[in-house]
């Protein structure tokens, strides 16, 4: 009658004694392992974030703090002067607005075009399909630098088959510096990393069961309407994340921006020219020969960098899931 209840809780020590020390060993092992893992991950995370933290601390320092050996992380003379100067040199507000507009427009165009193309590759059978898809892969692989010199001249003397000359326009148009060429390229999937977006969107559409469309077709829905009404709403998450990628990469891109948008003040271009402008400002306006000290220049540059990436970090904090989960969702496979 006084046999123990079947599920009577036992103390850890009793359990351990019963197992002959195995339990304790296991517990300790897993504790050591998770400690090691935590340290490793913390170290690597710190490695990634450290330059940003460093820039933040430097950007609030006065110049004299840079030479003060006792100042390491926390600024002694807290100041916003660096931000004011960087703002002035970057033409921050105007460049920010330009960048937002250009990035928004370009990435909307790119994703719209890539969605159409990705859907076409995923769902339709047509002659030469394999060949065209090979071209998409080629598009991913070809460095844009290979064709940059030709594109540059192409838009410098823009004239499709001599049409402009034929109409009596005289010399060829100089489209360089306007946003038109890049918008044109974006609308035809030739922007930054567009092959990748086509690939991702196609993989996603491949994973959608065909029966969805067949049901729509049976109900008398046309091809384009099916795409618009039935397929597109389901694909919204992947499209949003491709859009985010496109937006962010466009934001930091200098290659296409310098090539085509030379006259539009964009943050990335302004930032890459910041060092030069700063040197001029120091030598000419402040009258210090040699452009000031290296440390001071770097301080202003890192302040400028922070100002350029701040909107991106805010975007990332809010839309983090959209970035990370897209790649898993599309299930990239060769």
């Amino acid at each position: 009658m006084n046999s123990p209840l079947p599920n009577k809780p036992e103390g850890f020590l009793t359990k351990n004694r019963k197992s002959g020390g195995y339990l304790l060993k296991k517990r300790a092992g897993s504790f050591v392992y998770s400690l090691f893992r935590a340290l490793l991950l913390f170290g690597l995370c710190f490695l990634i974030i450290q330059p940003i933290l460093d820039k933040i601390s430097v950007s609030f320092m006065a110049e004299s703090d840079l030479y003060d050996t006792t100042v390491i992380v926390l600024p002694r003379h807290l100041t916003l002067d660096n931000y004011k100067l960087a703002n002035q040199l970057l033409l921050y507000v105007r460049a920010l607005l330009n960048t937002v507009w250009v990035s928004l427009g370009v990435s909307l165009l790119q994703i719209a075009a890539c969605t159409l193309v990705g859907y076409g590759f995923a769902r339709f059978e047509f002659p030469l399909k394999k060949m065209w898809f090979a071209c998409v892969v080629l598009l991913i692989v070809i460095p844009p630098q290979t064709i940059s010199s030709s594109l540059y001249l192409h838009f410098r003397y823009f004239d499709v088959f001599g049409i402009v000359k034929l109409l009596g326009g005289g010399n060829a148009l100089n489209l360089r510096g306007t946003t038109a060429p890049y918008m044109l390229m974006s609308a035809t999937c030739m922007g930054l990393k567009n092959g990748l977006y086509i690939f991702m969107i196609r993989s996603f559409f491949n994973s959608v069961p065909k029966s969805v469309e067949e049901a729509a077709y049976t109900d008398g829905c046309g091809t384009f309407r099916t795409f618009w009404r039935v397929i597109l709403p389901d694909a919204l998450p992947i499209l949003v994340s491709c859009f985010l990628f496109s937006f962010v990469w466009q934001w930091t891109d200098t290659f296409y921006s310098k090539l085509f948008l030379g006259n539009t003040q964009l943050l990335s271009v302004q930032l890459s020219g910041l060092a030069e402008r700063l040197r001029q400002y120091i030598t000419i306006t402040l009258g210090i020969p040699g452009g000031g000290s290296m440390a001071y220049q770097q301080q202003i540059i890192s302040t400028g960098t922070l100002m350029v990436i701040a909107p991106l970090i805010i975007l990332y904090i809010f839309a983090q899931r959209g970035f990370v989960e897209s790649i898993s969702a599309s299930g990239i496979k060769m």
Binding site: A113, V117, Y119, W132, M185, T188, F224
Partner: peptide, 14 residues
Amino acid sequence: VSGYLFILPFIVGF
């Protein structure tokens, strides 16, 4: 034909 219409932007751009 619809397939080609969908990938037309890519063909033109390419």
